[in-house]
Design a protein around this nucleic acid. Structure first.
Lengths: 204, 204
DNA sequence: ATTTTTGTTAACCAAATGGTTAAACCATAA
DNA sequence: TTATGGTTTAACCATTTGGTTAACAAAAAT
């Protein structure tokens, strides 16, 4: 911290620090002073570069969502079979989240606090949509590859199984009496356990 | 609101109001004044009955968790078969949450904010434990009733599928382009869709 | 070399917020 | 009737907090 900050990269340092603080404490719990300290700069700089807490928060939020959207596109707009997609998505997504453990909870929490944010991120470039996935599920059901299932419900199931443990980590660690290490192992297991669980359920 | 409040039930009114405000806004977002207004009383009463925001919050939190624990006990400590338990739990839990939609997110959010709360609720009377469920899964796997599956992973899967949609409601409504009514219908469907999904996956 | 623009800081400010207090209110037991 | 004790309120307080300002430093532009 508090390195000899030449002027240049201040804006990036702020965004980094803001990301850490906002993702850990949320909009309401975060303090501008704490962000400034984490960035090793004066609080006034936050306003110089981002005008207000609200705008700084929105920058962090959009940024976070931009990381998640491509992950979702892999299962929604990829061309492989549903089975392949489930396997790939589960494996990739869990790997991804292990590296960014605060992300899902941050997004969900702040979306609950202010559902209007959804519209803001929808304008984002590669915003994923469900149409292709639903059609593909219907096709594969008709072809007899999959047991009959509603595409929307399947989508919800897939993201529930993948995301929930990372949103409810303290709850799961508590019930299962796992420490950090045990929890991580459990999540590693899930890379295959979840896709098996899903495939078992839907494949004819 | 602001009825002719005889002295008696003030403490309860406060708890009610606090529940609403805390569950919607969380510890950090909630304001004591807002709680007082919601209860139709003077702010000083909050401190008279509960000393501090922290203690009032803890009262609300314990209370909320006491509602959820019995639901979990149904799947963990009931005597019926795994298949029965999955069916019953899914049906009951979703019905329950539709009536208390803020509950799961509230618990999860505040547990993330301060994981130590888990210890506080653990002391609670009928705190559910996983042992019986794990043993039962192993038994049924050995007996050939279920396909081989890890009891812990199955437990995580069950609660993920049941709870996640209510935690991530704005996200799901956004992606699936559902309004309140459509979302509620979707959740009604899930009472059977989720248990079918699980049973399909694990039953031999 | 000097003016202008951009970046940075310490000090400051007004509003919000959790919490306190002293006085008033009110039911009821003496 | 009047003490008595719990209950309720308006006013107040200290601190925190997001945000601003004015002065200053460092680059860029002239």
């Amino acid at each position: 911290m508090a390195k000899t900050n030449k002027n240049q990269d201040t804006e990036g340092q702020i965004l980094d620090a803001a990301k850490n603080v906002f993702q850990k404490k949320g909009m309401d719990g975060a303090r501008m002073q704490e962000i400034a300290d984490a960035a090793g700069i004066n609080k006034a700089m936050l306003h110089y570069y981002y005008r207000s807490k609200q705008l700084l928060f929105e920058a962090v939020f959009s940024n976070a969502f931009s990381l998640l959207a491509p992950q979702l596109n892999k299962i929604l707009n990829d061309d492989s079979s549903i089975e392949e997609k489930v396997k790939n998505f589960t494996h990739n997504y869990i790997s991804f989240i292990i590296k960014h453990p605060y992300l899902p909870n941050f997004i969900i929490q702040e979306l609950n606090r202010n559902p209007k944010f959804f519209e803001k991120i929808q304008q984002n470039a590669a915003f994923p949509t469900l149409e292709k996935f639903k059609n593909q599920v219907n096709e594969e059901v008709e072809k007899g590859i999959l047991k009959p299932i509603n595409g929307e419900q399947l989508f919800i199931n897939i993201i529930s199984l993948n995301i929930f443990p990372f949103v409810a980590t303290p709850l799961i660690k508590g019930f299962l009496k796992f420490d950090d290490k045990g929890f991580k192992q459990l999540m590693e297991q899930r890379k295959t356990a979840v896709s098996e669980f899903i495939i078992n359920s839907i494949k004819k």
